[in-house]
Design a protein around this nucleic acid. Structure first.
Lengths: 69, 69
DNA sequence: TTTTATTTACTGCTATAGCAGTAATAAAAT
DNA sequence: ATTTTATTACTGCTATAGCAGTAAATAAAA
């Protein structure tokens, strides 16, 4: 589906921030299971939970299309 | 939280593709309620459903951080 | 205006994401 | 090698996202 490995990106950023999954989960206000699932590229996670994690790690999201370009 | 109006982007692309919410929902394999919710920026939608809609509309997602630059 | 199509809104119902707790590996540190 | 920490995995349980169906409100077309 989406070939990009978002889980690896998040895991890498988490490591570089010196955080454990549990710490990241607490900072983002989600459960540790959710962080684990996200790093495993589980795509059924909810957008708000993913966004909360991305925000803690200072990762921005951009949407691009032939139109928006 | 995320100030970007993703719902408006999707609605705009859907219109330009000449699709109704129901048609887009069917193409993406999700319910019409989900398309409606996404266009209303409901953030509790599931990532896979959002991705399915984005794919139909040919919208790509990018993640950026000070590290990934 | 009247009709038709589309969007918005609401309602049960079902499936499952997310949760805390626990346990078992794996990795790091001592 | 032993201890400590971190990650992965599994388990009930609860909350809710997603669904189809319906209906009302808007918009577009006739």
């Amino acid at each position: 589906m989406n070939d990009f490995d978002l889980g690896a990106l998040i895991k890498d950023h988490r490591k570089k921030a010196g955080l454990t999954q549990l710490e990241l989960a607490n900072l983002a206000g989600v459960g540790k299971t959710t962080v684990f699932d996200i790093e495993k590229n589980k795509e059924t996670v909810r957008l708000n939970n993913l966004f909360a994690v991305l925000q803690v790690l200072n990762i921005k999201v951009e949407f691009k299309s032939p139109l928006t370009k």
